[in-house]
C-alpha cells in the first residue's frame, strides 16, 4: 500500500511539472501567472471570458470551451464554426446543432452564444484590448488571441 501511496504522491508532483511544461510548449508561459480573477470578464462587451484564453494556453489546447455570453451570430455560421457550440435559446443553453435539429431556430436566425471553443472565441474577438487594460498583472492576452487566430500559430497551441 505504501508503494501505491508514494507513486500517487509523486504523480501529483509530476502533474504540477507537467502543467508548467504544457504552458511552455504552448509558447505562452506567461499564462501560468494568471490570477483567475476574471477582472477581464467584466469588461468584455461581447461577453468573452479572456481567462479562458489563458487556460487554453496552459492546457496547450485551443479546443477547450470558454464563455462568450454576448456575441450575436447567425445560426448557420455558428454551426459551420462548431456544431457543438453552446448557444442561448429561449432561456436554455443548448448546442447549436441540437437547436437546429429540434427546429427551435433556423440557419438564418441570429442567435446569442454562450460557450465556444477558445480558437473560435479568438476569431470573434474584436481585439479592443480592454481585458489587457484591466488585468492586475498586465498579461499580454492579445498575443494569445492573435496566436489562436493565426492558423500557423494555432498548431503550436
Amino acid at each position: 500500500m505504501k508503494k501505491i501511496n508514494i507513486f500517487l504522491f509523486t504523480a501529483i508532483v509530476f502533474y504540477l511539472g507537467f502543467i508548467g511544461a504544457r504552458a511552455f510548449f504552448s509558447g505562452y508561459p506567461f499564462s501560468l501567472i494568471c490570477y483567475n480573477c476574471k477582472s477581464c470578464d467584466s469588461i468584455c462587451v461581447i461577453g468573452i471570458d479572456p481567462q479562458g484564453f489563458m487556460a487554453a494556453s496552459v492546457a496547450d489546447d485551443p479546443d477547450i470551451y470558454i464563455y462568450v455570453t454576448n456575441y450575436r451570430i447567425y445560426a448557420g455560421e455558428a454551426e459551420k464554426l462548431d456544431p457543438d457550440m453552446i448557444i442561448q435559446c429561449n432561456d436554455k443553453k443548448i448546442k447549436v446543432s441540437a437547436a437546429l435539429n429540434e427546429g427551435l431556430i433556423s440557419r438564418d436566425t441570429e442567435i446569442i452564444t454562450y460557450k465556444m471553443k477558445a480558437k473560435d472565441a479568438a476569431k470573434v474577438c474584436i481585439e479592443c484590448a480592454a481585458c489587457e487594460r484591466v488585468c492586475p498583472v498586465k498579461l499580454p492576452i492579445l498575443d494569445v488571441i492573435k496566436g489562436l487566430k493565426n492558423p500557423g500559430r494555432e498548431k503550436s497551441l
Binding site: G47, Y67, N70, Y114
Partner: peptide, 8 residues
C-alpha cells in the same frame, strides 16, 4: 458609459 449585460 454603462453596459447593459452581466454575463448571460
Amino acid at each position: 458609459t454603462s453596459f447593459m449585460k452581466k454575463m448571460d
